[in-house]
Amino acid sequence: MARRNTLARVGRIYGVLFSAFMLAPMVVVLAASFTGEGYISFPPASLSTRWYVEVLQNNTFMNALSFSLQIAAITATASGLVGVLSAVVLVKPSFPGRTFLVSLAMMPLTLPHIVLAIALLQLFGSLAIPSAPYALLMGHILITVPYVLRLTMTSLGGLDPRLELASFTLGASRSYTLRHVVLPLGLRGILAGILFAFLLSFDEITISLFTALPGKMTLPAEIFSYASQGSDPVIAAASGLMIIISAVVVIIIEWWFGLLRLILGDEPAKRGSRPAGE
């Protein structure tokens, strides 16, 4: 009995320490961003929002933020279209070559981003086409499509196939069925995938750094170049801005779909019609 309590206590202490370790960098950045001093200190000697005011008035950071948001929006839209279109086809178990195509589509996930970045630069170089911002966009689309594809496939794969057949017997064409039955029922998973694609693109740093042009960088890339020159509270505030934006998207995903389900990829409960328990 005593041993059991000791074990439980050790476990609790470890849990608290581990949680502190996991959250420390974010907490420190947020705390440092609200310093009233002209240098980074933790805990801050005085509190103020002056560095946020500074960031919001800083053209470099604001241009970078708007560029980041644009890239993330385009990436999410494109990945959403590509991922959903192909998921609709690839979710059919009978589709020839399905396994091969799905694993091919998942391969960019195992490719180091740095290799993908120089590969895209060389592609555009050998085509003699200006790489910015297309190399960046293509890189982001490549690394986000797998998530949209997978989430959409799980969402649609969980549907009762008889829903489609029922729609057919009522005279609905394949595309009508897709628009009125299949996609509305898969909507949660699809939108979660698209939001996640937005966030991944917004957060991405390596491809952004390699493919960005000076003066036209994403916010993470801009933070990188500032941070490599020293630690200024304005970087903390810019990082704080990123945390806030990420948190907003995360909250939407959590409320709309469930964060744990998104990451752990649990099979969504079958949402086909079922007889109510009587």
Partner: peptide, 13 residues
């Protein structure tokens, strides 16, 4: 041909 499926396959939404 109208079909009533075993689990009814009603559109849940």
């Amino acid at each position: 041909v109208g079909v009533v499926f075993q689990s009814y396959a009603l559109f849940p939404h």
